[in-house]
Design a protein around this nucleic acid. Structure first.
Length: 553
RNA sequence: UGGGGCGUCGCCAAGCGGUAAGGCACCGGAUUUUGAUUCCGGCAUUCCCAGGUUCGAUUCCUGGCGCCCCAGCCA
């Protein structure tokens, strides 16, 4: 029997199943509606996977729509970056690429319609007055003195707002609902504001722009969205969206809210990410430490890992804090299957094999031990090699299965060596190890049956090369950087360590964007920006699990 | 002291009146020329609390408690 691939159940699927079952809906049309004011992050990935995933599994479609109603913050660079990221994640919006700005004429016509119906009016209070008259959480608001302007006057004023006769802030179009509503969003919310700003798509053809609240629901309606999925903070806005849709008498999408993703040891607000970029605290939106899609891509996280992650964490309405280890596990799961195995030494310690029978001994190393069909490459063992400093200890505990005076260890893909002598510098620091090898152990276990517990990696000092490597760690040292006052205070000073590693020759040919496993160390990806042909620069994507590190504690 | 949500293992999460899935983390143990991978095994008599309905409640009702969101001419 074949194993059924089951998509985890969640409350949104339950709602859709019910809608489909009772005929309330006959198809599923969703959308991912980013504002092009920044780069996408892992939280957006959750929404993208949800929306596109739902459309896919119900045989519907998912639109990519840019919510570009605020020209002051939006740019084409972001539009392009967002498209790139969604496509890279593996989703296809087909012909369904839309912009809120495509609907500006329609939105304007609807605003005029509401004015004519006596459902909207032009207010001329200042922003401060409006705020003062809005009331508080416990007290009702006060009607604006302009609330009962005639339809004619409202129409005239709104048209002149559009024509550019007034400066920013002079007037504003408001919905006439209820200044005493316990839901503040219903206290005559703003619909259109005057903004003499250049829009990234419509240029200067408009100087009034719809508010998100007056645009979003109608955009969904125009596109025939059936299930409008958004995050929890819009729950209290739903009655307003429903009100506009009802007044206008147009198709009503169903809004469903879910809890946004929170990841430990990172921040997720676009404002804070922008700040990190603008203040130069990271190298850019695609800095490999950023929780952005582009940062993770550059770091080497496979798209499949991010998709798995989004599936694994589920969808609910309870505030969720996901542990970073869940993401890392998803990354390792994919990379363990796909990455070729190579050897590289991060912190070198010289070893001389005093009795190597020939100047160089040809060895073979599997490209992937669990996938023999991927072949093997040749490795030349020479008299002088480098091993990892951490693989040697002067006074080693019993359980240390590596090099120590008098102890034996296996050189990965080669032979068994014993540490005979430690050469130290003036400071007493080991600078070189003199070892003797057992020539009978190339591709074989010791003939006398003695067990060699440890295997360490190495790089030939004559055939190896040095390459730049960037060791990345979590960007913040607090689980929740938002809770600690200024989030910048808990940046991890060791989130990036630039170093050089000794690598085996095959590593010179790793293509930009390709990920390999440095055996016993971690997964490393050739940086897509800084690598040159034949000279990759490696980013550490993820470490391997390390039960020895745990044991040490 | 307004309104809207949420509360199942350390972190997520299924469950929809019939006697607590799964993942991550964690702890054992096996295999291993990566202390990796893989593989076995352990990990909530209990579902925020207190009452109630019921033969039976995490699921229904009532009342508490706790947490989150809303007073932008941001989205």
């Amino acid at each position: 029997m074949s194993e059924a691939i089951t998509t985890p159940s969640n409350f949104i699927r339950n709602i859709i199943d019910a809608d489909l079952a009772d005929g309330r809906r006959t198809e599923v049309v969703t959308r991912f509606p980013p504002e092009p004011n920044g780069y996408l992050h892992i939280g957006h990935a959750k929404s993208i996977c949800l929306n596109f995933g739902l459309a896919e599994s119900y045989g519907g479609r998912c639109h990519l729509r840019f919510d570009d109603t605020n020209p002051a913050k939006e740019e084409d660079e972001y539009v392009e970056a967002i498209k790139r990221d969604v496509a890279w994640l593996g989703f296809d919006w087909g012909d369904h690429l839309y912009f809120a700005s495509d609907y500006f004429d329609q939105l304007y016509a609807w605003a005029v319609q509401l004015i004519k119906d006596g459902k909207a009016y032009v207010d001329s209070q200042s922003a401060e007055q409006m705020r003062a008259n809005r009331g508080t959480l416990t007290e009702p608001g006060v009607d604006s003195p302009y609330r009962n302007r005639s339809v004619e006057e409202n129409l005239d004023l709104f048209e002149r707002m559009k024509k550019g006769e007034f400066p920013d802030g002079a007037h504003i179009l408001r919905a006439k609902i209820d200044m005493a509503s316990p839901n503040l969003n219903l206290r005559d919310p703003a619909m259109y504001r005057i903004l003499h700003a250049e829009h990234h798509r419509t240029g200067d053809t408009w100087c009034i722009y719809p508010m998100y609240d007056f645009a979003h629901g109608q955009e969904d309606s125009i596109e025939g969205i059936t299930h409008s999925i958004c995050t929890l903070e819009f729950e209290a806005h739903r009655p307003l969206y429903d009100w506009f849709i009802a007044q206008l008498g147009i198709h009503a999408p169903q809004q469903i809210e879910f809890a946004r993703l929170n990841l430990s040891y990172t921040v997720m607000s676009k404002r804070k990410l922008l700040q990190l970029v603008e203040e130069g605290l990271v190298s850019g939106w695609d800095d490999p430490r950023m929780p952005t899609i582009s940062g993770m891509r550059r770091r080497g996280y496979p798209a499949a890992a991010i998709r798995n992650f989004c599936e694994r964490i589920g969808v609910g309405k309870a505030d969720a804090w996901i542990d970073l280890s869940v993401l890392e596990d998803c990354v390792r799961e994919v990379l363990n299957e796909s990455a070729l195995r190579r050897m590289a030494v991060l912190k070198p310690l010289k070893v001389t094999i005093t009795n190597l029978p020939q100047p160089e001994v040809a060895c073979r190393g599997a490209n992937h031990p669990q996938q023999p069909e991927r072949g093997e490459r040749e490795l030349l063992l020479t008299r002088e090699i480098y091993v990892e400093r951490d693989d040697f200890m002067e006074d080693a505990p019993r359980k240390f299965f590596r090099l120590a005076p008098g102890r034996e260890v296996r050189l990965r893909n080669a032979c068994v060596v014993r540490c005979d002598e430690v050469i130290k510098d003036d400071a007493g620091e080991a600078v070189e190890l003199l070892c003797s090898c057992d020539p009978e152990t190339f591709g074989a276990n010791p003939a006398d049956g003695r067990k060699i517990k440890g295997t360490i990696h190495w790089v030939s000092a004559v055939h190896g090369r040095q390459l730049p490597v960037r060791i990345y760690d979590r960007l913040f040292r607090e689980e929740n950087p938002d809770k600690a006052g200024d989030f910048r205070d808990c940046l991890n000073p060791e989130s990036l360590l630039e170093t050089r590693a000794w690598v085996e020759p095959a590593l010179l040919e790793v293509a930009p964007g390709e990920t390999v496993q440095f055996e016993r160390t971690g997964y490393f990806t050739a940086d897509a920006v800084d690598s040159k042909p034949g000279a990759p620069v490696f980013n550490r994507t993820a470490t391997l699990r390390d039960s020895w590190a745990k044991l040490k504690k």
